[in-house]
Simulated assay, not measured.
Amino acid sequence: MSVLELQDRGGLYAFDEAQCTEAGKQLAERYQSAEPFPHIAIDDFVSKDVLRELLTEFPSSDGHEFFDRDQERFKYQYHPQECGPRVRNLLAELNSQAFLSFLSNMTGIKGLISDPYYLGGGLHETKRGGHLGVHADFNIHNKMKLQRRLNLLIYLNDDWDEAWGGHLELWDREMKGCTEKVAPLIGRAVLFNTDLDSFHGHPDPLACPPERSRRSIATYYYTAPPEGVANLPKRTTVFKERPGSTDRADWKVRAQHMWKDWAPPAVQRMLSSAKAD
């Protein structure tokens, strides 16, 4: 029995809004009281059989671009347009009114908006030796001019050996220590608030066999601040170094943020205009 049931409607799957709403209410206290920031890990979130069907459509990484730098290595992202119909069906349902009702009732965040552009979302894959450093995510959707509020990850890894690593780590807001580790097992979902200090990642290199990889579904959710996003501090992904580790700082991003925070707006506009010319 899954937490959220996907009903078969003529060969397509769909969530039931009433069931989603009730499930969200039942999980609200657990989610909203979690530390170090509001989050939850849920086993059997949706049917494992449905997820195994999706795996038959998982895109090939052959010739595909991937991240390969100190902060994130051997990480692939596949947009829904690169995926088959089963994957696209589930991604559409994860952006539906029914699913937004689940999220709003669980998190207490009203007016959630899904992302039809899937900026950074879709399917994710990390290969052997790859990692994703501890970080806080970008906070502004530039196309929609919205504030990012929630992340959803659904893992797709059958028969995953914990010795291979790949655990999602949640770190405290001061980056003093990891407070929770979540193994990326099939059917397990993780949802969490994406504040500027919601630090998370899977920072140690994967030790899975060469023929295996760490796979997941990722979708993100937003709200429209009443005052707009112009007055919010704009951040791209901010990577953090773990105490006592060999993690390397992302000085380029730090310099960009310092510039945006301290350079006079008129100077920023003038230089942006000059670059455009």
Rank of each mutant, 00 (worst) to 15 (best):
M258S: 07
C178Y: 02
P203C: 03
P265I: 07
C208W: 01
R248H: 06
P38T: 01
R242K: 10
L91A: 08
L94H: 06
S33E: 12
G120I: 04
A276R: 15
P209C: 11
Y78G: 09
H200D: 03
Q97F: 00
A163G: 06
S60W: 10
A28K: 02
Y78M: 11
S96V: 05
E93S: 01
R235V: 04
A189G: 05
E5G: 00
A98C: 07
V190H: 01
N193T: 02
F99T: 04
Q71Y: 15
P36C: 01
T107N: 02
D158G: 08
G177N: 01
G10Y: 01
F192S: 03
R149K: 15
D204W: 14
A41V: 13
E162V: 08
H64D: 13
S47Q: 07
R214C: 05
L168E: 09
C20I: 03
I42H: 02
D62K: 12
M1Y: 00
V238S: 07
N142Y: 08
I186T: 14
G228W: 10
H202A: 12
S2D: 15
R86K: 14
G133W: 09
D137W: 11
D195S: 14
L4I: 12
L12M: 10
A189F: 05
L4W: 03
A274L: 15
T179R: 05
H39C: 07
A189C: 06
F199Q: 12
L51Y: 10
R212Y: 08
L206Q: 01
I109N: 01
K252Y: 05
F138W: 14
L12C: 10
A207K: 15
G201C: 08
H257T: 03
G201Q: 05
E93H: 06
G121C: 09
A98V: 00
R235Q: 12
R86N: 13
L150K: 01
F66T: 11
S96F: 03
Q268G: 01
G111M: 13
A28G: 03
L152G: 04
L112H: 02
